[in-house]
Design a protein around this nucleic acid. Structure first.
Lengths: 169, 169
DNA sequence: TTTAAGTTTCAGAAAATACTGAAAATATAG
DNA sequence: CTATATTTTCAGTATTTTCTGAAACTTAAA
């Protein structure tokens, strides 16, 4: 096995392990890594062979990755099988992940907080007011963070991060 | 059960469910939520009773929350049992979570990328150069994002977010 | 059509993760 | 020191998540 192939394999394996920490499953992370470092689009069978996973597993995770927007199907002329390639633009990858996290993590959290804030709004006891204040503060923050992420992730390109770094100094 | 108690219970249950999405376990999320809305510190037994979980489970998750810095032990005079209270300052909570995520998610990712970048540095083939470029770009981005988070989370208070929002508009 | 290639689904198996309960360890009071 | 209260640990169990493999389904060539 060439040095290059070794490095790729290592990357794919390690990225898969990281996926777990992140809360996305190992296979999905590995497929994403594999396509990220593949110079050409791969078929389901390529992926099954490369990662030693079943067809069902490969298929499910490919569809999930497509639905995230992290990879896309490509049609190669004269080929029956579907091929897949990864989005390779770092900034776009970031935007996709940021949006997905917002959708799956912070928006539901904000919704829960908002519900509780509304339900405690009319209560008069000191303890209830305390609760209301606490949850309002959390929600206000989450909402603000959400809107920042949304704006950041809607930019076409990140000329932005260096500017933010400047505001911070 | 009072309306207030219902709201709290609902918050605790929903926050626990959200925890799963987030990759932190249900019990840990529920204990954190419970302490966040509790006006006074609680003992392990209080928590076991309130959430119907075992002593082992409560103990383990309390220790984890303490190690994150999201809750702390407090000593009440004349009491033998340990009591726990949550950090209630929203900005501090955010800083803790941001640091922990950086430590557990982005730093390991950056390390993996850096390794692969280094190992592919000396290779000469076109494909190897492509790999090197791709992974370098990812790592550069992750590193920048990391340093932004570090700076944001090291501020004493968030007078910051509104400023960032301004840069974005 | 019919036939074969390719894709999707899903029930059951395997693996990973979280939880319980009780024993061991530690701390405090008397 | 002894007795008792409290905390911690951990082996075994339960639950959740992920994966496999084969059958059902879809598509397109012949």
């Amino acid at each position: 096995m060439s040095e290059l192939a070794k490095i790729k394999d290592n990357f794919v394996a390690q990225w898969g392990a990281l996926g777990s920490q992140w809360g996305i499953n190992r296979t999905m992370a590995m497929i994403h890594a594999l396509l990220l470092v593949s110079p050409n689009p791969l078929t389901t069978d390529d992926i099954m062979a490369e990662l030693s996973v079943s067809r069902g597993n490969a298929n499910t995770n490919l569809r999930d990755l497509v639905s995230w927007g992290l990879i896309r199907q490509v049609i190669l002329k004269g080929e029956r099988k579907d091929h897949y390639e990864a989005e390779k633009d770092t900034w776009k990858i970031f935007c996709i992940v940021a949006r997905e996290r917002k959708r799956r993590e912070t928006e539901p959290a904000s919704q829960v907080l908002k519900d509780c804030v509304d339900r405690s709004k009319h209560l008069k006891t000191a303890e209830a007011k305390e609760l209301h204040k606490q949850l309002s503060s959390l929600n206000e923050f989450v909402t603000l963070a959400n809107s920042i992420m949304e704006k950041v992730a809607s930019k076409e390109k990140s000329s932005l991060l260096p500017k933010i770094l400047k505001v911070l100094s």
